[in-house]
Amino acid sequence: MINGDDGFAQRLREMGFGEAALVTKISGRTTSLCQVNGTRIALNHNAAMAILVEALPAGVR
């Protein structure tokens, strides 16, 4: 789920970071690096805080 600033949420979705996207976190603590749909997208802390991701059940990839 994406919260916060509408324009920002729109851009995230347009970049494929939408509600249905599969996200793999690669690195980072405050600023995080995620892999979505084969691209690497960096999000800073504030941006990442606006996104709620759900963990996939173990074994599913």
């Binding site: 600033d5 920002f8 997208i41 504030n46």
Partner: peptide, 12 residues
């Protein structure tokens, strides 16, 4: 202004 939000694509 509000804390900036950053999204940046990292190229290969």
């Amino acid at each position: 202004s509000a804390r900036p939000l950053m999204i940046m694509e990292l190229p290969a």
